[in-house]
Simulated assay, not measured.
Amino acid sequence: MAKLKFKFAVKAGDDSKSNIICITTITDVNNQTFLLPDELQPVKLHDTIIKTEAFAKVKNTLKRRHDQRQVWISLTTEISNVYIDEDGNMQFKGYLLEEAPPEVHQQIPTTGISEEVLTRILQSCAEMNKDVPKPQNVRNITEKFVIEKFTRKTSNVFQWMTIFEAECTRLGIEEDLRKIEALRLFLEDSCIDWYTSMLIKHTINSDWLVWKKSFCDTYADKGWSQVRYALLFKYRQGSLLEYALKKERLLLEMNKTIDTPTLMDLIATGLPHYIADKIDRKTLKETEDLFNNIRGLEHLVRKQNTGVLEKNNYEKEEKVRPCRICEKENKGSRYHPETLCWFKNINNKPKREYIRSVNNSELETELNQIDPKN
């Protein structure tokens, strides 16, 4: 019975995130292979093939992207009318299919080949192998990633995951397995425990979307603590520029789509008033303009910090000096504030009045001389 061999492969869909099954080639019983163009490959266009039992088995077999299978399908009248025209040409939807070029070993006879020809063939194969890119180690590729490691202190898991996937695309990591392997190299702290649990539950051969959803659901911050910290973060001490850069990072982690004027306003409101009032708000177009102005005012902070430091040093010296009152009263060297000294008022205490002592006989005489009527 006549039959055709169909080659099925799982490819990326239109949105690059979904997978679709495609028919890439058709081979007849004479080993002639015909290629289908990309626009005619999706299996949803091949209604007669979808109805066969062979396709049902293929659908249950192909689960992951880049999986392939070749199966023979009996050439019924309906299938023959779709893929073979009345002249015996291989076609599909009125499009004549192109025959694939034969393999090298089919072009060269297996007997009577000279040593010179064989040498040239081997050299050609060696040059072709040099051009084929070899799969690189995931760890070596991730060294080129421009992203910080994820810890439990990372504020925005969704933004971090977006950057991670963009880096995977940039460096050619497209397979789910390699993305899962790369993710492990960017986790720290308790995130390692989460990764181990996922390996036990789903294995490393599972779908990347499953890992991504679980990761984002686990570490999503649904409260307001990140927002409060970013908005209320103010300058305390140190470099003004360092404060401004950190404030910008916190605000962008909180909301990546925040507009530039609002971003600059929030950074400026965290500055000391005497610093912010020296910046002309109307001249600022980008955050770099604000940073340039802030850097030019660093000397004002350094001057103030120097005055505070000198005052603190003076107060510190006053604290370590011995009490002069104790030294004056010969009480030794005692280290305490003079205002709290026990002997501070010893010379200012009022003197006790002198009490005159009299003889009892004199007192008796005076009492007898007093008139009792009075």
Rank of each mutant, 00 (worst) to 15 (best):
N81C: 08
K222W: 04
A220D: 09
E329L: 03
K201V: 05
P350A: 10
Y219N: 10
D217I: 02
V117S: 11
T48K: 11
E298Y: 04
T306C: 11
I163L: 08
N347G: 15
K373M: 05
I204V: 09
N255C: 09
N30F: 06
R139T: 13
Q68F: 00
Q237K: 13
Y95M: 03
E248Q: 14
Q70W: 00
K130I: 03
D176Q: 09
E329W: 02
L35P: 00
K5T: 01
E143M: 04
L309Q: 15
E338K: 12
P37R: 02
F158I: 08
K246I: 02
G270C: 07
T119M: 07
Y274V: 01
E327W: 07
Y195D: 03
L118R: 11
D131T: 02
H105C: 05
L367E: 08
S214P: 01
V58Y: 00
C191Y: 02
L297G: 04
T269A: 13
V358N: 15
Y314N: 10
T306N: 14
T77P: 04
A268W: 01
T77I: 04
W194H: 10
G88R: 05
D15S: 13
V138T: 15
R65L: 09
I346V: 07
R236G: 14
D207Q: 14
E165S: 08
T27G: 03
L297V: 05
N156Q: 05
G112T: 08
K44H: 07
E362S: 14
D87K: 11
L340E: 14
R356D: 01
Y95V: 11
L284M: 09
Y354H: 10
I49A: 00
V157I: 13
K256I: 02
E127Q: 14
E127G: 12
E318H: 04
V146R: 13
K179G: 01
N312G: 10
L284A: 11
R334V: 06
H46G: 09
S80A: 15
I147P: 15
S155E: 06
E165H: 12
H336V: 07
T77G: 15
P372C: 11
K344Q: 05
L263C: 13
V138E: 10
L96R: 14
K373N: 08
S114G: 15
N137W: 02
I50F: 03
Q107H: 06
A126G: 06
A56Y: 02
S357K: 15
D67E: 11
R249F: 03
Y335D: 02
T339H: 05
P272V: 02
Y95G: 01
E188K: 12
E329K: 08
A56L: 10
E248V: 02
K234R: 13
P101F: 04
Y95D: 09
E362Q: 12
Y229H: 14
N305P: 01
K213Q: 13
T27I: 03
D15N: 15
L185C: 12
N345G: 09
V308M: 09
I163R: 06
T24F: 00
C191L: 10
M264I: 09
L340Q: 14
N293D: 14
G112A: 11
I370R: 15
L266S: 07
G88M: 06
A54I: 05
E39P: 10
H66S: 12
S114C: 09
I267K: 01
F343C: 07
E188H: 04
I173D: 11
T33N: 08
L250W: 04
K17Q: 09
N137K: 10
